[in-house]
Design a protein around this nucleic acid. Sequence first.
DNA 1: CTGAAAGCGCTTACAG
DNA 2: CTGAAAGCGCTTACAG
Lengths: 354, 354
Amino acid sequence: MANLKDVARLAEVDPSTVSRVLRGDPSQAVRPATRERIIGAAQTLAYRPNALARGLRTRRTDTIGLIIPNIDNFGFAEVTHGVQAAAAQAGKLVLLIEADILGPESSRDGTDRMEELYLRLVGDGRLDGMIVAFASLDDHLVAQLAERQIPLVLVNRRTTGVSGSVVVDDERGSRMAVEHLIGLGHRRIGFLGLEADIDTARRRARGYRAGMAAAGLAVDERHVATGPPTLAGGRAAVRAVLERCASATDRPTGFFAASLLGAIGAHAALREADLAVPHEVSLIAFNDHELAAHLDPPLTTVRMPNGRMGQEAVAMLLGALEGGSVEDRMIEEPPVVIARGSTAPPMTNIEERT
Amino acid sequence: MANLKDVARLAEVDPSTVSRVLRGDPSQAVRPATRERIIGAAQTLAYRPNALARGLRTRRTDTIGLIIPNIDNFGFAEVTHGVQAAAAQAGKLVLLIEADILGPESSRDGTDRMEELYLRLVGDGRLDGMIVAFASLDDHLVAQLAERQIPLVLVNRRTTGVSGSVVVDDERGSRMAVEHLIGLGHRRIGFLGLEADIDTARRRARGYRAGMAAAGLAVDERHVATGPPTLAGGRAAVRAVLERCASATDRPTGFFAASLLGAIGAHAALREADLAVPHEVSLIAFNDHELAAHLDPPLTTVRMPNGRMGQEAVAMLLGALEGGSVEDRMIEEPPVVIARGSTAPPMTNIEERT
DNA sequence: CTGAAAGCGCTTACAG
DNA sequence: CTGAAAGCGCTTACAG
């Protein structure tokens, strides 16, 4: 591979001149003839500046790191999309780390290796900045990362001690989900929340409770269960609720699941319990996906601007690299309830009407 | 951030000695006392070797690039998982590029920017090697990439001129899908193939035709349509087939879709045409996913070892970095038909029985 | 057992 | 308008 020296030799100029011309350095004027010789030489040699050498000198790598828990979760796939798109737009590359590849985070070993990996990433000099989405990452480690030299922006979560973050309005979206059910006539509404001890889980729970309270409805704590945002998590949560509520008049007539995969798992558990959706139980999910329309019944969801969240995170990070300050931002774009077939008026209401 | 010189100063030795000790250089023996001083100094300064400087010197970046068309496609998510896991295991980092972030590949501009991005990636010096999965990437560009200095392994596709590749047995999996339908009694079997002009699409089509031929069944070309591996693609393909086949005795009693998303789109189109699955039409998909069990009816699929494919690609790439040779490999692990609710004997058979 | 030197390929003040 | 020099932070023969 040709290097700067090779180009300089062919163009019969000094390497520093080549560097200036190729980077379009504005501080220096170069005679047109020289510039053309240089550009021609670079082309014939198919010269590409070495990113490592440049990065070593400039302390800029044009690469940002993105840590997500798991790519299988649709929400994070959307965030990843947004990050990639915004990064590509700005000429940045993305180094992606899926947190769960290192084995179960529960294991001592998994945690250690993950921590080692993260510290390597930030200490290594290969990243200009980092975006951390959600994650199994505990607050302690996030704080450690934040102390390092490179800018850090949190996505889909906030934590004390880190000042840059982008979130969607989890509370509002959750509240809208509950209000959708209330609007249909439901009064006993269950909540399948996230178990992780992070503010995002809390904001979704708060939205649920706020929606209930605003309608003057008491929350029956037997109707609330938490779990990971997975099929198995949603399934187990519904089972837990159903076990606690023996009779049909005890159990919820509608569920709000704080994750899309959780909702699909919840549906499976309801089917296993011979409860028809939406006839006997309604179901609405936080986060939308094209596939939701293809389930049977099609799943009612609240669409959140996750892609925007990823884009904004990149924008904030790039701003920080230019010396700007970071902040805690919430995406303005409002959540949208996509009413499909999994929600309907509760049975009692229908019975009253007939 | 502390550098090698800082550590050397604190430990009162030469930087080169620090380097040897910290890398565990086997060629040089170091006195235990010195070594401990160095390790202590590195620890107190929280020293991390700079990856750029090291990479510049050693020509190793411990980073591999992964290009996938799109992370929304479940199959590629599995591949990505496999790549990440194997890479992490080997201490390598992964730079992920989603091809479709640069805008529609169809557009002249999108293609140009993509090409520029790829050439930058391989010419840049920041990657040790690259894994290219499937992709909108045309053979021409793949060949260009392959000519460059860095090793290249293709995943889920082969092309002339590139010698390293890992694929699953697309033909066998496809044939198994068709045989599953034939085993249930179907004789008019439709094929919803991939439209891309790559060998993977051809191998899946070949499996379909081989399965038909082996059972002595003629392929009705009106039953064959192609499209991208997306919901919209599968939907359009089924519509095309149904349009060509006016009567119930003309149309297929079963469909084999060459992609999972395509199958889900196909199901939607069947429903829109008031054709019940599996009662009136059976449906089986190439590639499995946990979600398939949660569709209604649960979707019968052929599970392919996609994760393994990603792992093998990393292994082959790392082998190539050690000077080993690359080859065209097919994952041995056999495909598995997961029979769920979307396939059943054809109506005519049922009618004959009653 | 350890040090001194050269160099990976760039960029960027500093001269002229 | 262009060149010569220093240096980013490492590694690695080469000495001794």
